[in-house]
Amino acid sequence: MTTTLITGANKGLGKATAQRLIAAGHTVYVGARDEGAGRAAADELGARFVRLDVTDDESVAAALKIIGAQGGLDVLVNNAGIARREGMGEALDGPSVLEVFDTNAVGIIRVTEAALPLLRKSANPVVVNVSSALGSFWATHEPSRPAFAFPSIVYGSSKAAVSMITVQYAKAVPEVKFNAVEPGITATSLGGGEPGSHPGRPARESAEVVARMAMIGADGPTGTFQEDAGELGW
């Protein structure tokens, strides 16, 4: 049995990924800051709930301690992320930028570092970092890509950091497979809107590429950036 932790999994892409992996036979922990929403999502999906705030070291440590005590971990999906609605009345300032980077980039390191002792005990340890084409230097310079025409100063920069975090972990921890994923433009509440307010395709469709990379075998890739059609340029 493969045990998987997904951060930010009480709604949107994280929840859809949890549903897909449960259908594939994984035991899934729904990680969420909000205990009520997290437990409700876990109960609905047939998953386990663990309270986890990726911006809080103590919360992360406590969550991984619980998972370890209950049997260990094989797969980590770093999905939790936030965005600022640039150009929609929200000015950029230091605190708001730090909040995005703390969640989207530093949060991945917090959770990954806490999870590594458990992942190293797995026969097939995998980490999937949910990134974005907005963080791809190639896609943001390629006129045929949506990311080319969509300026995203803070969110895009934070996802570029996710890409480098992925590459460096793949080099530093070769016994664990690390890959980044571009899930596609997805209808979620990213940016603080109502559920589904962000334009895009249904979360269940975008979850397919995340789940695919979470289910790679021992011969699977590491240090890559993946999307629906295959590998994406950094």
Rank of each mutant, 00 (worst) to 15 (best):
G191C: 03
K11S: 15
I216M: 09
G68N: 08
E227I: 02
A180C: 12
I108L: 15
N79E: 10
V106C: 00
L98A: 14
M1D: 12
V54A: 04
D228I: 11
S122G: 11
T2A: 11
A187Y: 10
T7W: 05
G71R: 11
S157W: 00
G71H: 10
S157A: 14
Q70K: 13
G196V: 09
G46V: 12
D93I: 01
N129Q: 08
Y29C: 05
V154P: 01
G223L: 09
P143W: 09
S136I: 07
L52S: 04
S122N: 10
V127C: 08
D34W: 04
Y155L: 03
E231M: 10
G156H: 01
F148A: 12
P143L: 09
V181T: 06
V128T: 08
A42S: 13
D93F: 03
L5Q: 06
A83R: 01
E44G: 12
A32V: 05
T112N: 04
P143G: 09
P202M: 11
R39M: 13
I66N: 00
K65H: 13
E142W: 15
I216G: 04
A83G: 09
S152Y: 01
D34G: 05
E231F: 13
R204G: 00
L134A: 13
G8F: 02
N129L: 05
L134V: 08
S144V: 12
V100D: 01
A37K: 15
T222K: 07
P143M: 10
E194I: 06
V100P: 00
V167Q: 14
E58N: 12
W138G: 00
T103H: 01
L52P: 01
A133P: 05
V50I: 11
I185S: 13
